[in-house]
């Protein structure tokens, strides 16, 4: 990878971190609830009445209640982990392959 491209990528990644983190500091005391919840509030507002979902999520039905917050974050981490694992595994292979190919030339 060219030096210039490496620098571009570094700058871009820093930018991503900034965009993601700045709201946390800029909006002190904000709740940062999910926008899905904001959506359900909007439904209540438009209908003028609380909406009763007609189907409960399978998982909530199975454990008889809402998924505990810690478990939810565990499952979200699992999802991230699977994704990162796959990307990292193949990326590692590709990087090594390129090294090996470059040596062959």
């Amino acid at each position: 990878m060219s030096r210039k491209r490496k620098q571009t990528i570094a700058v871009l990644l820093v930018l991503v971190c900034l965009i993601a983190i700045i709201p946390l500091f800029a909006l002190k005391g904000a709740e940062f609830g999910g926008s899905d919840d904001a959506g359900s509030q909007m439904i209540t507002e438009i209908r003028g009445a609380e909406y009763e979902p007609w189907f409960t999520p399978v998982m909530e039905a199975a454990i008889g209640g809402e998924l505990p917050g810690e478990i939810e974050s565990l499952l979200f981490c699992l999802q991230t982990g699977i994704g990162v694992g796959v990307i990292a595994f193949f990326m590692g292979r590709l990087v090594e392959r390129k090294k090996w190919q470059d040596k062959q030339l």
Partner: peptide, 11 residues
Amino acid sequence: SLKIPSVTGSC
């Protein structure tokens, strides 16, 4: 899977 805080105060 990444919930990210945004300028509106929700994720």
